[in-house]
């Protein structure tokens, strides 16, 4: 790890000194920007998480009271954590499997492939307002399209969003539909980077299609998959839009996510201190999961 070496040890070697200076120089614009636009606001909200702050009047220091309340006396927070974890656990594997399959499927030069790629990418670009309106209608219990089709097959009616047992899964379904196009694009870009000679060599060795996937494609896509998992963790653990637009956290709190709780406490109850504390507890969870994931992939990659 480079971090274990001191700046002075780099300074002594001319080539390493140059690399180091260039390294800092290239990172500097981004780092300066992140410092101002991200770190300052995050540090402010970290401070606010130790206060009682109703946005309209000045914050009052309360120490760790917000954290204590959340961790020991807040059933809804615990429920939201559980919902969020379950949601992420369902969305991530589905998303990765389907988006990789789609990417492999459209990574060919056949006629009209551009059209299919575009069609698969459509859910990503359609405004969330329109998407949630359409899905609310699809999920409508009595006259929605999904139940109409199921009814023809003699199934149903399914109470998609109105049933506490199903609502979260219904949101998962919609999220996967909406999200796979995005990851498909990343996988597609990743597939471009795999050198052709590897496949040619494998063909000479008589590898089957499956063998090529297992021994070349999948290992070569590791950095991409790693990226997709980390980004997936970060985004699914902060799921808000679908909940806000479609269920409002119900029924029976079954779709209340942590990010929804943050919004609710910050801008509906004006308890910004507590909302910030929720956010930092969530931050802790995502950070730990990301680090575990990074460890796992680094040991597997190297």
């Amino acid at each position: 790890m480079s971090a274990s070496h001191s700046v002075s040890s780099y300074w002594k070697n001319r080539a390493r000194r140059h690399t180091m200076l260039m390294g800092y120089l290239f990172v500097a614009p981004m780092a300066l920007y992140v410092l101002i636009v991200h770190f300052i606001p995050i540090a402010s909200s970290l401070y606010l998480s130790f206060t009682d702050y109703n946005i309209l009047t000045a914050p009052k220091w309360v120490g760790v009271a917000n954290y204590v309340k959340l961790l020991f006396r807040d059933d809804l927070f615990r429920r939201a954590m559980r919902n969020t974890a379950q949601y992420a656990l369902e969305v991530l594997p589905l998303n990765i499997a389907i988006s990789l399959a789609l990417a492999l499927l459209v990574n060919r030069a056949t006629r009209g492939i551009v059209i299919f790629r575009t069609l698969f990418y459509l859910p990503v670009v359609t405004s969330i307002i329109a998407v949630s309106m359409i899905w609310l209608w699809l999920y409508e219990p009595r006259s929605g399209l999904i139940n109409l089709i199921l009814g023809k097959l003699g199934v149903g009616p399914v109470n998609w969003l109105g049933s506490p047992a199903l609502a979260l899964h219904s949101l998962v379904l919609m999220r996967v539909w909406r999200g796979v196009g995005w990851n498909m694009v990343i996988y597609l870009a990743g597939l471009q980077g795999i050198p052709q000679y590897l496949y040619e060599a494998a063909e000479i060795d008589g590898a089957s299609g499956l063998g090529k996937f297992r021994y070349i494609t999948w290992p070569m896509l590791k950095p991409v998959t790693y990226y997709i998992i980390v980004m997936g963790l970060i985004s699914t653990f902060q799921t808000f839009g679908e909940v806000y637009a479609m269920t409002g956290g119900g029924p029976l709190d079954s779709t209340t996510t942590v990010a929804f709780l943050v919004y609710q406490r910050a801008f509906q109850y004006f308890e910004m201190g507590e909302a910030s504390a929720v956010a930092f507890l969530l931050f802790g969870v995502i950070l730990v999961l990301s680090l575990v994931n990074i460890r796992y992939f680094q040991t597997r990659l190297d």
């Binding site: 606001p41 606010l48 808000f240 943050v262 910004m272 909302a275 910030s276 930092f280």
Partner: peptide
């Protein structure tokens, strides 16, 4: 990893 709703006001 921080939900946007808590950094909105500081930003």
């Amino acid at each position: 990893m921080i939900p946007v709703y808590v950094t909105l006001i500081p930003l």
